[in-house]
């Protein structure tokens, strides 16, 4: 967490921060329902489904990192997020409700 002094020295643009996290959040809630669809088609049950969600959410973050963050930010370029935890784990709980919704729906549709 940056201290107040650091924030005074290098201030942060709130609009850009909101824009970035909203972009990531939109992607995560959209893909979570997609993962629910495929988990329902595969017929996963109990822990398997949640592990599936966890693995594919991390894959989503990794792909997003590869496409949007890494090309400009690796060589001491601009920063886009406050910290690594916010980027990798911040959106896991976001899409869980949508995931469970479509998971149960498609499980019921395929195996009714």
């Amino acid at each position: 967490m940056p201290s107040e002094l650091e924030l005074q020295i290098s201030p942060i643009v709130q609009e850009s921060l909101v824009h970035n996290s909203r972009t990531l959040q939109n992607l995560q809630s959209l893909t979570a329902s997609l993962f629910g669809v495929s988990a329902g088609i595969l017929g996963l049950e109990s822990y398997d489904g949640f592990l599936f969600y966890l693995a594919f959410s991390l894959l989503t973050s990794a792909l997003f990192y590869l496409v949007r963050v890494a090309p400009s930010s690796l060589t001491a370029g601009p920063r886009y997020f406050r910290g690594p935890f916010e980027f990798w784990a911040g959106g896991l709980m976001n899409g869980l409700a949508g995931f469970i919704l479509t998971w149960t729906l498609f499980y019921g549709l395929v195996r009714a």
């Binding site: 942060i12 850009s16 972009t23 939109n26 886009y80």
Partner: peptide
């Protein structure tokens, strides 16, 4: 997805 914006002023 939309391109990101740098957060440092």
């Amino acid at each position: 997805t939309r391109p990101l914006r740098p957060i440092e002023w």
